[in-house]
Amino acid sequence: MNTLEARLRAHPLFADLGEAMIRQIAACARDRHFDAGQYLFRAGGPADEFFLVREGRIGLEAHAPGGAAILFSTLGAGEIIGASWLVPPHRWMFDARASVSTQTICVDAVCLRNQFETDHELGYALMARFLPAFVKRLHATRIQLFDLYGGQAR
């Protein structure tokens, strides 16, 4: 197993994935490092990659026209950055920027989507891992929306 495959397996999302599937993903993946402040992608751009964070922290930002950026989520080691590559029209909704120096594995989404078309088993195995991660994040976002701490005594 080459080192990129080992690093993919070290990510919690793929820890229990079979060797053949890890190899298939690795064929579409490469290591990428981002310095603090560097963008991974910007809103409106083509969502043809996604990122597995190995170390560091990525901030997701929304820009109001002419206004300051709002940082609405940060994601760290063991998490996945980017969901728009899964759903048409495959365009980023937000900006993603490294808050600190960050190590990722960048996966070519076009390469992976093409594999899903011919290998449904791979597609299913990955969806079964992505979906819980995204649903968890949706729940966490809802908790943020409750504005729990403001009007509460505790």
Partner: peptide
Amino acid sequence: VTVDHADAGWRGSVGAVPALIAG
């Protein structure tokens, strides 16, 4: 420390506190 929202200058964590437990 994690906050519900911040401007882009904040270098800390943004998100709900239960989401930090896994890491």
